[in-house]
Amino acid sequence: MIVIQNLTKTFPGGITAVNDVSLHIAKGETVGLIGANGAGKTTLIKLICGLYLPSEGYIRVLGEPPFGRKSKSHPIGMVTGQIITDGYNYHFGHSSAVLQDDLSLELNLRLIKSIYRVPKEVYKRRLGELVPKLGIDQILHYRADQLSLGQRMKAEIAAVLLFQPDLLILDEPFIGIDVEARETIRNLLREMAAQRNTTIILTTHNVGELERICGRALLMDKGKLVYNGSFDHLKMKKFHIGLTKMQVVFEGMPPDLQDFPIERYVIESNTLTLYYDSSIISSKALSGYLLSQGKATDILIQKPTVADIIKEIYKEDEHKNDGENH
């Protein structure tokens, strides 16, 4: 299904986003792709979808080079929940890879039926199943660019399931989606994999979510594929990849953490170690708050490295008795 050998993608300006990756994915497999922001996940996905031309290396998807694919009988579906930023502003105006912004969801679905040559009866049957399952009947007449992030994800997933791709790629699909809808989507994906033997690649930074669906984990760091194997082996049940570590040395009583949404903390003698998602909590605000209490004498902030992540994963059992706030 997917064969990748020594694949490298370097962008103009010299940034190597994917570096010498080799990988095989079999038909019907469901694979989870993990990595911190900037690890090269999205670039790898876009190489697989044929949106980037590889700089070096070999890639075959469904038997042919994906960039400029000629055979159109085996569609690839891509759903992305990533909010694109230019570093300063969110581009809410960024168009979807599935839906056309200026059309209502209903018109989009009909257009997709024509583009992917879905027979009328099949279209009706699938729509009849998907609409109630995903609870999108209320938003069918909304324009695609008027949907909220969560609604848009559901709409895109409905659209993709409508044409039943051979390869389905979901990039952060659970952003903004409530627990119930997640369960529905998970079940739909499992069904697809089981009944149609669809190959699914999924990325999310919520590893627990991945483990529920995926049979295999791929871990990327700085463009390299650093782990390729089972989740059991990784034992990453309770961890979110890519947490920033802050070590605070304090005097007397440990400082108060107010209501900062810290993922996990450990207190050892006079050192408080915090793990948090720096995309949610600003390191500056957190350290500022801790310093303002006058108890902290030293603060060390470390961005996550894969070595740390893996070390943490293997130390999971030791941490069980520590102050986990899960």
Binding site: K72, H94, S95, A97, L99, Y116
Partner: peptide
Amino acid sequence: RHGDFDRVMLRPR
């Protein structure tokens, strides 16, 4: 710029 061409590239036409 808006990413619409990605959609065009992905579709089988």
